[in-house]
Amino acid sequence: MKICDLTQFYSPVSGGVKRYVSEKVRYIREQTERDEHVLIIPGERDEVIASDRARVYTVKSPLISRTSRYRVLLRLEAVEAILMRECPDLIESGDPYQVAWKAVYSGTALRIPVVGFYHSHFPEAYVRTARKYCGPLVTEMFMDFSRRYIRNLYNRFERTLVPSPALGDLLASWGVRNLAHTDLGVHTAVFHPKAFPDEDVRAEFGIPRDRTLLLYVGRLAQEKNTQTLFAAFRELTARHPQRFHLFVVGDGLQRAELLALQHDTSAVTWLDYCAEAPRLATLYRGADLFVHPGVQETFGLVTLEAQACGTPVIGIRGSYMDRIIHSDQTLWARENSPAALATAIEQMSCEDLSKTGARASRRVAAQYSWTQIFVRMFSLYGEVVRNYAPRS
């Protein structure tokens, strides 16, 4: 079977979607004999890079963010030319904008089944902005438009993959049919709690050994709620000077806020990106506590990776991410506020973090290896291909 992933949510410094695709390619190479993979993404130039049973096509596209390095794929005729050349057995669309519509129309024209992966619950960010600036009437109008848009687009796919049952229930209530739940996973040979002898994150970055080391990995953006994390850390350092240190891996539009926090507290270490999974695993293992402030995550892959490495997670209750937290959430913040998150971190840091992290690591390893995830996913792909009835 030849599978083609088509997405705009991909850049040299992107996170979850890029990891998902790269792990799918690894699974094809290591666990299958004849399957192939094609990836179509926006890039700096038109290019194709071929390797063992995998090809990556980049379509020259304009840059829309210098921090995230995301590009907008506008040359849709180039996408169709690649699909015609490759003739995949199945197309998977990974974003909800113009590329998704192109996947649907090209799939119909070429008689190729198309599935959509609902990676991001994008209406949340827009609704929050509308609520803040436009009031309840405009907010409700936008929500109505979002529901109709999502229903109209995703009902055109043979299946809509969702990484959370609760998110699937929401989309079903909006009228989306053919939903299929699939978890994301972890590369358990890389993300595990056993540290290597030369690993010493504190010594490498000059972090005092008497500090509780907090770690955040992800974009610095409104939709990731990093402003709440930064404000919570300010409050923590005011309550307990010299007790906590924050390590941030990621970049984005809130970089200035992070740099101000670093300057004001002298207790922040920042890496704009970490490309290598083993290096990221070292950072997870080096932290005492992983902090995830997100309230609109569809899955929360970094929280799974942190737990796989034996590092417990603290955050804000009530997101789709709650179901993959494999430790007690009693101490998690119950509201999205800096004070609540600061208190949650403060209280969690007093627990036996090693014991909590070890328990979570065992559970993640048992349930979320990428091999388990892709065995189920490829079975679904096969079912879609076998049952596909081209629309006239």
Rank of each mutant, 00 (worst) to 15 (best):
R66P: 08
D169C: 08
V127H: 07
A221N: 11
M377S: 05
R376C: 08
V115E: 10
T129H: 08
F142N: 03
T182W: 12
A365C: 01
A100F: 02
G250I: 05
V72M: 13
D35R: 12
V17Y: 01
V25W: 02
G107K: 01
R209M: 00
G206I: 03
K18A: 07
E276D: 15
T58Y: 08
L380H: 04
T182M: 13
P163V: 02
R69S: 06
T330Y: 09
G300W: 00
A275S: 14
G206H: 04
V21R: 02
E335T: 10
A342C: 08
L271G: 06
R151V: 05
C350W: 11
M141K: 11
P62F: 02
V201G: 09
G43Q: 09
A281N: 11
V384M: 09
A333H: 03
E158R: 10
Q222Y: 15
D183G: 06
T226I: 03
F191V: 00
Q98E: 13
E77R: 12
G382N: 00
L380Y: 04
H240E: 12
T67E: 15
S266A: 12
L153Q: 06
G218P: 01
A339E: 06
A180W: 10
G16Y: 04
A267W: 04
L171F: 02
S11E: 06
D144S: 15
V17I: 11
E346S: 05
V56L: 13
Y126Q: 15
F191I: 07
I324S: 02
Y388V: 04
A103P: 09
V13W: 01
R75Q: 12
T265K: 07
I324T: 05
S392K: 13
R243G: 02
T108S: 13
R71A: 04
L39F: 00
L215R: 02
E297M: 07
Y381L: 02
A281R: 09
E335H: 07
R363I: 12
R239N: 07
Q372C: 06
A81H: 04
I112K: 03
R159H: 08
G294W: 04
R362V: 07
P193C: 05
I41V: 15
E140I: 03
A232W: 01
M321N: 13
D322M: 06
T269Y: 01
V385I: 10
A81I: 03
P241Q: 03
T108F: 12
